Amino acid sequence: MLDPDNTGLIVVDVQGKLARLVDNSDELIVRCAALIDGAKVLGLPVVWLEQNPDKLGQTVEELHQRLSGSPPITKFGFNACEEPLFIKQIELSQKTSWLICGIEAHICVYQTALGLMENKYDVHVVSDCVSSRSEENKRLAIHTLSARGISITGLEMCLYELVQDCRSPAFRPILSLIK
């Protein structure tokens, strides 16, 4: 079970034109926004990444405005774990479980999830908050990650797992994000 005291969120490369080209892009951005808002309600640290932003562009405005508390971590490799600043931020958080959302599921999300697992983190890919240019590549990523031991969750599933109890002060704000 996810524990709000021990969980963080990683937002992977929801940037530029690519964010508008992935399968179900509008829904993806809305769901990622809800996940980010939910993480904030729960007090989870949020780490966000941008892949080669000079070429791909910045994080889409709908998410950028929610993430403005700290700057994005720029990366060039597909596996964010190869970026020392990313690893440093993950370690400083002292969280052992990480939710992952973003694009593309079969490239950067996939490689970062496996990199985190190799570094002994508990990784949960939020399946309805990831996408690729084709549905087939997203399905392949989810299937392969699951087969390799990465937990697959969904937006509602992970937020309610983190809330734990309808008497929690976070319950109503989370409920409003899901409706």
Rank of each mutant, 00 (worst) to 15 (best):
M1P: 13
M1G: 15
L2M: 10
P4K: 01
N6T: 01
N6P: 02
T7A: 02
G8W: 00
G8H: 00
L9T: 02
V14H: 10
Q15A: 13
G16V: 11
K17Q: 14
K17T: 15
K17N: 11
A19Q: 07
A19W: 07
R20M: 14
L21T: 11
V22T: 05
D23T: 11
N24M: 10
N24R: 14
N24Y: 07
E27T: 13
L28T: 04
V30I: 08
C32F: 04
A33T: 05
A34D: 04
D37H: 08
D37W: 05
G38I: 04
V41K: 00
L42T: 04
G43W: 04
G43C: 04
V46Q: 04
V46G: 09
V47K: 00
E50Y: 05
E50C: 11
Q51T: 12
P53Q: 11
P53T: 11
D54V: 15
L56W: 13
G57N: 09
Q58W: 15
Q58H: 15
E62T: 13
H64E: 10
R66Q: 07
L67G: 09
G69V: 01
G69K: 03
G69E: 03
P72N: 12
T74D: 07
T74N: 10
F76T: 14
G77L: 14
N79C: 14
E82D: 14
F86M: 10
I87P: 01
K88H: 13
I90R: 00
L92I: 07
L92Y: 05
T96P: 07
W98S: 09
G102D: 11
G102R: 01
I103P: 01
I103F: 08
A105Y: 05
H106W: 12
Q111W: 12
L114W: 11
E118S: 08
N119I: 03
D122M: 03
V126Q: 03
S127M: 08
C129N: 02
C129W: 01
S131D: 05
S132N: 11
S132W: 05
R133T: 12
A141Q: 08
A141N: 06
I142P: 00
I142A: 03
H143S: 14
S146Q: 10
S146F: 08
S146M: 05
A147F: 01
A147Q: 04
A147E: 04
R148G: 03
R148I: 03
I152R: 11
T153S: 15
T153P: 08
G154R: 06
L155M: 10
E156K: 07
L159G: 00
Y160A: 03
E161F: 14
L162E: 01
V163A: 03
Q164L: 14
D165N: 15
S168F: 08
A170G: 02
L175E: 08
I178S: 10
I178N: 09
K179H: 07
